[in-house]
Every structure is written in C-alpha cells, then in structure tokens.
Simulated scan of single mutants.
Amino acid sequence: MPPERTRPKAATIHDVAAAAGLSRGTVSRVINGEPYVSEEARAAVESAIRQVGYVPNTAARNLKTKRSRAVGLIVHEPHPLFLEDPNIGAILLGTNSVLSKADYQLVSLIIDSERDSDRVADYLGGGFVDGVIVISARAGDPIGRAVTAMGIPAAFVGHPPDLEGIAYVGIDNVHAAHAITERLLLTGRRRVGMIAAALDRDSGRDRLAGFRSALGERFDPELVVDSPLYSYRTGLEGMRELLKRAPDIDGVFAASDAIAAGALDALREAGRSVPADVGIVGFDDSAWALRCQPPLSTVRQPADLLGQMAAQRVLDQLDGKPSAPGGTMLDTEVIWRESA
C-alpha cells in the first residue's frame, strides 16, 4: 500500500512573528490592518508571511468581527435566461469589480423556483452574507419582502413596485422606450407593434408605458403581445403572433435585444425584409444587438455601471454612511443602426 499522505502543518501567527522577529501582537495588528504600526514592521511582517506561507484564518476573523465579508447577488431568473442574458453578466461583473476592491466576496444566488426562494431566504437569515443586491425582483416577490423585513443592507437593480423605502439603482425605462419608439415612427412606420415582456417588473411595465405614450392615439392594444421573460423565444413566438394579428405590420419595438433577435428570425422565416418591410428596434445594446443581421437599433443602458452603483450602495450601508433610501437613476442613449 502507498504511504498515507499527511497534510503539511499550516503556518501560524507565531511562525510569522518568529520569522519577522516581532511580537505576536504587532503581527496581529498588521494582519488586521490596524493603525499604529511602523512601515518597517509592516514590511517585515509581509515578508515573513510570504516566507512561511501563512494564510489568515478568515473564519476566525469573521467570527470575531461578526462579518462574513461577502455580499450576495440575487438573480430572480430561470437558469437558461441567466446564461442567455448578457445584461446579467455585465451587472455581475460590475458588482464584482467594486466588491473586490473593498475585499468583499461576491456570492451568486439564483432563484429559479419557489423552493429556491425559500432556500435563499433561509441562507440570508443565517448571516452568511453581510448584504445583498437583488436583480429582477417582481411585484410580490418573497425574496424582496424577506430582504426588507430582515433589515439586511441591500440595493435593488430596478424598483419593485410594492417595496418602498429601499435603495435602488435603475434607468428611466419610460423615457427610453418613448424615445426609441418616437425615432422608429419618424422613419414613416404606420402599423407599429410591441413585443413586451416582464410586465410584473418595473422595467417591463415602464417600457410598455413609454411605447404607449409615444404612439398616443395611434396605440392599438391588439398590436401588443407579452411574455414573462426577456428571451429569444419570446421574440420568436411574439413576432409570429403579431404577423397573424396584423399582416401589414411595418414596425416593432422589442422590449429587449434578445427579444428583437427572435423577432428578426421570425420575420426572416415569414419572408419579410428588415428594414425594408419591417423596421425593428430593441433595448439594452447588449451583445445581441451586434450579432443580429442587420445590427439592431436599440437603447444603450449601462448594465455594468448599474452593478457598480448597486454594490457601492450596499458598501455604504455596511460602512454606516448616511444614505437616504431611494433611487439612483442612470442615463440611457438611443443607438441607431440598420434594423430600422
């Protein structure tokens, strides 16, 4: 039989002190980032840590400080959409960039079912994270209610309609949807419909409101189809339905770029040319927009900055900085390309 492998003994703070030629207390102050340590002592400790291979016991430190040094990112989307939607990835990376600089760990928590909601709520109550950022919270969302009831430092990307007094970061979806629909109408389109989505969220509901306000008296509810998700399949099936309802449709506002991509393929299978027969616009200016042929006219929203700002709102709360509850609204921009 091969000899049993034994794990090498981990270096301790005493080993660091011996290698540095300093007291354990001085080493402890350096490791914990405390003041009143000379630069010479700090350099000696850091050199000794590298020499002996010391790894701080974060579990013990967290027990002492009652902090986990972790922030949860709760994404309330089905698993396939989590992988399909580039905005979620951009928000995640933006969030991580801010947390990393503050020495916090990002913990991703994906909710795909009611069971997930219960599990994540129990996890939050266990003190495993110091704060949370919530993406895609719906009206009546149990996680949103649990977060506010716990009083845990939190920020939402978007603004759940039934939660007041919360910190959130978002965009003016009404204004942005109005602006791009108005631009589409200026191309001379007369029969303009919308493939809407996520009407149980502020983003979906507000994009529909902006579309409706841009059309005014020309708005026809029969030219609006909707689905729960911002997905490619929503666009594919929604465009097929719009063509059944209005074969003469010549303009479409898709509530996201992924939806617009599906709509483009439905138009292609129906033998409709874009933009000659139908002009189509999307929303997000995500990777979908440039993958499409023709490239999408769309609304650019700063997904990475949304994540950064939400993370900073949580860190401010953890640091005890005064911050009045309420929203931070970021700018959007209409990006005009060949699809319309």
Rank of each mutant, 00 (worst) to 15 (best):
A44R: 15
E84K: 13
T187E: 05
A261T: 11
N62C: 10
L22A: 04
D331L: 10
R212A: 15
V192M: 11
A255R: 03
S297M: 04
I171C: 13
R138L: 05
E237Y: 06
G279C: 03
H159N: 11
I195W: 08
A149N: 07
A198E: 05
L185I: 00
T328L: 04
I13E: 07
D206C: 05
A155V: 15
D112F: 05
L223T: 02
R29Q: 09
L184I: 01
L63A: 09
A303S: 14
I152T: 14
V224S: 11
Y123S: 12
T298I: 13
I280S: 05
Y168A: 07
A287L: 11
V107S: 09
R218S: 11
A260Q: 02
I133P: 02
D130K: 04
L199P: 08
G125H: 11
V107N: 09
A44S: 12
R191V: 14
D103F: 01
E164T: 13
L163R: 12
L315E: 07
E114H: 13
A146I: 03
V120H: 08
R291D: 01
Q308N: 02
A263R: 04
Y123C: 00
A20N: 09
L22P: 11
L305F: 05
M194E: 06
L109M: 04
A10I: 02
P221V: 03
P322D: 06
Y168V: 14
A198C: 12
S108K: 04
D116I: 09
G262C: 14
L305N: 09
A18D: 14
G210Y: 07
A198N: 08
Y36I: 01
P322C: 07
V71A: 09
V98R: 08
A19G: 10
R7N: 04
V174P: 03
R50Q: 12
L106S: 06
A176N: 10
E46Y: 00
D304K: 08
P86C: 01
P80V: 14
G127S: 10
H79L: 14
Y168W: 15
A102C: 03
D304E: 11
P322N: 14
A43M: 00
D284C: 12
Q51H: 10
R218F: 00
L229G: 01
P294D: 10
N62K: 12
N32F: 03
A246S: 14
D116S: 14
A154N: 10
R212M: 10
A176C: 12
R115C: 09
V55P: 07
